[in-house]
Design a protein around this nucleic acid. Structure first.
Lengths: 96, 96
DNA sequence: TGTAAATATTGACATTTATTTATATAAAAT
DNA sequence: ATTTTATATAAATAAATGTCAATATTTACA
């Protein structure tokens, strides 16, 4: 009934910097500093974006010493695919 | 390089009322007044949401007399599917 | 033509969010 | 232990967005 959680997930995609980050992660795990070098943002802004992506389950995270490492979980892709299907499949193609 | 257009498309999904509207349209074409009855919003707010969905290519639209009719284009679904794939597929599964 | 009904637009306002500066926490190295 | 390096959190601010009231536009019909 309420779609608040789905909205939160979709909103995690709705930012140019976060889409750029996802494109980086597609070629494999990246450390936080590499992401910072690629974007024109400050370090706290990067922290904010990574938290948004991880909270939505679109990025995975772990800490190695002082470095943060980020990657794309295959699960995140599945969740997003299912979400899109949930709202856009028409009756004749099978609503979920 | 810039992902502004993709952000705009995704943002069209990022609202509870618009997700509710999409769920309604999955069972077939609906007129604007039916959508208004289903949601706790005013008529101008509905106009705003429908414009957002149509501008993003997620809903189709035509006018029959004074009534607006809305539906889900199969193409819109494809656009969203491709968008999700573009940002979440990992290298081993084939980046676009 | 004139009135009623359905929708669109405008302007204002409140909430959300991306951003930065400043500060705090955590881990490594000297 | 103290300093350095990487990251996280807090507070403040500006921009974007959802909402409604008021008004305009469009269409049907008497």
């Amino acid at each position: 009934m309420g779609y608040r959680e789905d909205v939160r997930t979709v909103k995690a995609l709705a930012d140019e910097n976060r889409l750029t980050i996802l494109r980086m992660l597609q070629s494999g795990e990246k450390c936080a500093s590499a992401i910072l070098e690629e974007l024109n943002i400050t370090q706290p802004t990067r922290s904010h974006h990574m938290k948004t992506l991880c909270d939505a389950g679109i990025a995975d995270w772990y800490k190695e010493g002082k470095w943060g490492k980020y990657s794309l979980p295959n699960q995140g892709s599945m969740n997003l695919r299912n979400l899109v299907a949930k709202y856009t499949l028409t009756e004749k193609y099978g609503i979920q």
